[in-house]
Design a binder for these strands. Structure first.
Length: 420
RNA sequence: GUGGGCGUGGCUCAACGGUUAGAGCACUGGACUGUGACUCCGGGGGUUGGGGGUUCGAAUCCCCUCGUCCACCCCA
């Protein structure tokens, strides 16, 4: 039996890093006023088709959708924003002026697996609901950058853009359409086909012909209406004030329909083609489109697998993330009772203790201690038992000393803090 | 969904179409009856991803399939 395609286990060797990634995110986000929300993994299909957009790749060909026993159309969530917004409306969280939420968990998309892209993947998301101020955009991005710095992401690059609003985007789209229409022959097949659907995509295309053909294409940022332009200027201005470096990328396009105004993407090193480690933006119309009150919002999602790839490729993690292991060896039947009592005492004291009970030579136990990566091995044999002590051996130096039962915890604490 | 690379013990990899598919690491036993790492000696572990075909003979060549990686696409 094997896990199904695009699904994988996260084994202990990796999970310590995952927990670290999550807990640091929650710690940092909470200092910005975010609180956790736990969302269902399954939602009505309609929630996603309406929010993400009928014509998008996600909705069109990547969702795990099925009918339940009653015949209701359900979908394994492909992203977190729509469920968060649904919960926000349903639970009337809008009675508060601003709501800041974060969440984590698995998302599902039926895509071809490759490095940094899986069918079940994990995101950490955050949403600010109820504030249109450009300061929110800048501050939330700054929070994300700070978080990346804290967990040790280097060489992250922030790209930002503005997609305008329902007022100015259609006009831009028309103009772009005219521009592309005059150059249809130089566009790749793919882009010729999608010009009608989503002309913005052509700006993002990597094929030689499209890159050249769209070199002088009109840029959205130049076509923003006054309010959108001022908003965008506000965002970039605040980013500068917050010392956040960014690249203005007027070609950056989003694959979800709900985005308005600010959008951004952060890329990381050592990831190949799937190099976006976090992305997001503003979605000012989504809440009202889903039946809630007019509520401007901003949010982002982080790809956990990609983060963990970047972090493990740049090194430094592993042993340091888990606490030192103590290995307690009890030798000979008479020692057993005392050993169990001492182990219990150590665990109550917060130590991480593995145990082995052996007859005869401690050789095997020592070997096992070594394999486990024990920092200290504590031996209680019949000699020690008769003296009321244990032998404590520091594995790295092979130093060994007798410690009376009653002083064991104190001794360990003193030694550990001494180590620094 | 499209194109390409790669699948050999737990891991990293060898093996011109030709003996019983090897090595290092890992695992395990001993040298070493109260002490791990280092050293030495021994041991177990493979239907060469799976299925079919070509051939006297296939890990090796061909086809199908599954998986993985890369690019496209898409996105976190």
């Amino acid at each position: 039996m094997k896990a199904i395609r695009g699904f994988k286990d996260i084994l202990p060797a990796e999970s310590a890093l995952w927990r670290h990634i999550e807990s640091e995110a929650f710690r940092v986000f909470s200092t910005y006023g975010f609180s956790e929300i736990r969302l269902p993994i399954l939602e009505k299909t309609e929630l996603f088709s309406r929010s993400i957009g009928e014509g998008t790749d996600i909705v069109e060909k990547e969702m795990y959708s099925f009918k339940d026993r009653r015949g209701d159309g359900l979908t394994l969530r492909p992203e977190g924003t729509a469920p968060a917004v649904r919960a926000y409306i349903e639970n009337k969280l809008h009675v508060k002026p601003v709501t800041k939420l974060y969440y984590t968990g698995p998302m599902f998309r039926y895509e071809r697996p490759q490095k940094g892209r899986y069918r079940q993947f994990y995101q950490i998301g955050a949403e600010v609901l109820g504030d249109a101020d450009p300061k929110v955009d800048a501050e939330t991005i700054e929070m994300l950058i700070k978080y990346f710095r804290i967990i040790g992401i280097k060489d992250a690059v922030l790209n930002i853009n503005s997609l305008g609003c329902s007022g100015c985007r259609p006009g831009y789209k028309l103009e772009l359409l005219r521009f592309l229409g005059a150059r249809m022959d130089s566009l790749c097949e793919n882009c010729q086909r999608r010009v009608e659907e989503n002309p913005l995509r052509a700006l993002d295309c990597k094929s030689q012909g499209c890159v050249e053909a769209t070199e002088d294409a009109p840029s959205m940022v130049d076509q923003l209406c006054r309010p959108c332009f001022e908003h965008f200027e506000g965002v970039t201005g605040f980013l500068m004030q917050l010392d956040v470096n960014y690249v203005l990328n007027s070609r950056m396009v989003r694959g979800l329909d709900y985005y308005t105004r600010t959008t951004f993407e952060i890329t990381g090193p050592n990831l190949g083609a799937q190099n976006t480690i976090a992305a997001g933006g503003r979605y000012d119309k989504l809440v009202s489109e889903l039946g809630g009150p007019d509520t401007p919002c901003f949010g982002f999602a982080i790809g956990m697998e990609r983060l963990s790839i970047v972090l493990s490729s740049t090194g430094g993690f592993g042993a340091s993330l888990s606490s030192p292991i103590f290995f307690f060896v009890s030798m000979g039947k008479p020692t057993r009772k005392k050993a169990m009592a001492l182990v219990a005492e150590m665990r109550d004291g917060g130590f991480r203790v593995e145990t082995a009970y052996i007859e005869g030579s401690p050789k095997k136990a020592m070997k096992r201690a070594d394999k486990l990566g024990a920092v200290y091995t504590i031996i209680l044999g019949e000699d020690e038992l008769s003296k009321g002590v244990v032998s404590v051996k520091e594995m790295a130096t092979a130093d060994q000393s007798f410690v009376p039962y009653g002083e064991l915890i104190l001794w360990l604490n003193a030694t550990l803090t001494g180590m620094g």
